[in-house]
Amino acid sequence: VTTYKLVINGKTLKGETTTKAVDAETAEKAFKQYANDNGVDGVWTYDDATKTFTVTEMV
């Protein structure tokens, strides 16, 4: 189990959260659900070296 981080660069919501998951795919599903629940829709990137997902909403 690995800890993954999500950085949110939203128009109205900004911040970070973490989740523990067995792999990046599982973490991504959890983060996308979290973003969807919070009304964040944007471009996703993932950095495997730092285990960090970033979602950026276009203005």
Rank of each mutant, 00 (worst) to 15 (best):
V1W: 14
V1C: 14
V1P: 11
V1Q: 13
V1T: 15
T2W: 15
T2D: 09
T2E: 12
T2A: 10
T2L: 14
T2I: 13
T2M: 15
T2N: 12
T3F: 08
T3L: 13
T3I: 14
T3D: 08
T3W: 12
Y4R: 00
Y4Q: 00
Y4C: 01
Y4V: 01
K5M: 07
K5P: 00
K5S: 06
K5D: 02
K5Y: 13
L6H: 00
L6M: 05
L6I: 03
L6W: 02
L6Q: 00
L6Y: 01
V7W: 05
V7Y: 11
V7N: 04
I8T: 03
I8K: 01
I8M: 10
I8N: 01
I8P: 01
I8A: 03
N9A: 09
N9V: 15
N9F: 14
G10A: 11
G10R: 05
G10H: 07
G10Y: 08
K11F: 15
K11A: 08
T12L: 10
T12V: 13
T12N: 14
T12G: 09
L13A: 07
K14P: 06
K14S: 09
K14A: 07
K14Y: 07
K14F: 10
G15A: 13
G15S: 15
E16S: 12
E16H: 09
E16K: 06
E16D: 05
T17R: 13
T17N: 07
T17L: 12
T17C: 12
T17E: 05
T17H: 13
T17D: 03
T18P: 02
T18V: 10
T18I: 08
T18Y: 14
T19Y: 13
T19P: 01
T19A: 09
T19F: 13
K20S: 14
K20C: 11
K20R: 08
K20W: 15
K20Q: 14
A21G: 04
A21L: 03
V22R: 07
V22N: 11
V22G: 11
V22T: 14
V22K: 08
D23I: 03
D23G: 04
D23E: 04
D23W: 04
D23A: 04
D23Y: 04
A24C: 10
A24E: 08
A24L: 14
A24D: 05
A24S: 11
A24T: 10
A24Q: 12
E25Q: 13
E25D: 12
E25R: 11
E25M: 09
T26R: 06
T26M: 13
T26K: 06
T26S: 11
T26P: 02
T26L: 06
T26N: 08
A27H: 00
A27W: 01
A27N: 00
A27V: 02
A27I: 01
A27P: 01
E28P: 00
E28G: 10
E28C: 12
E28N: 05
E28W: 15
K29E: 07
K29Y: 09
K29I: 10
K29V: 07
K29F: 07
K29C: 05
A30F: 15
A30M: 12
A30W: 15
A30I: 15
A30G: 05
F31M: 03
F31S: 01
F31T: 00
K32F: 06
K32M: 08
K32I: 07
K32A: 05
K32H: 09
Q33I: 14
Q33V: 11
Y34G: 01
Y34D: 02
Y34E: 02
Y34Q: 03
Y34A: 03
Y34K: 03
A35M: 06
A35F: 03
A35E: 01
A35P: 01
A35Q: 02
N36I: 15
N36H: 13
D37F: 08
D37R: 11
D37W: 07
D37P: 02
D37A: 14
N38S: 08
N38I: 14
N38F: 15
N38C: 10
G39H: 09
G39N: 12
G39V: 03
G39Y: 06
G39L: 06
G39W: 05
G39K: 08
G39F: 08
V40I: 15
V40Q: 03
V40N: 02
V40Y: 06
D41E: 14
D41W: 13
D41Q: 13
D41F: 14
G42V: 02
G42Q: 02
G42C: 02
G42E: 01
G42S: 02
G42I: 02
G42M: 02
V43G: 04
V43S: 08
V43D: 07
V43K: 08
V43C: 08
V43P: 03
W44Y: 02
W44V: 02
T45F: 08
T45L: 07
T45Q: 09
T45H: 10
T45K: 06
T45S: 12
T45Y: 07
Y46V: 01
Y46H: 02
D47N: 09
D47F: 04
D47E: 07
D47K: 03
D47I: 05
D48K: 09
D48H: 09
D48P: 11
D48G: 07
D48E: 13
A49S: 13
A49V: 11
A49Q: 12
A49I: 15
A49K: 11
A49D: 10
T50D: 05
T50G: 04
T50C: 04
T50F: 05
T50A: 08
T50N: 07
T50M: 06
K51Y: 12
K51Q: 10
K51H: 13
K51S: 05
K51F: 13
K51A: 06
T52A: 03
T52Y: 02
T52Q: 04
T52F: 02
T52K: 03
F53M: 02
F53I: 02
F53E: 00
F53G: 00
F53P: 00
F53Q: 00
T54A: 04
V55P: 00
V55N: 01
V55R: 01
V55L: 11
V55D: 00
V55C: 06
T56I: 09
T56V: 08
T56H: 08
E57Q: 13
E57C: 05
E57A: 08
E57H: 05
M58L: 11
M58T: 14
M58A: 13
M58R: 10
M58D: 12
M58Y: 13
V59F: 13
V59K: 09
V59G: 15
V59Q: 13
V59L: 14
V59N: 11
V59A: 12
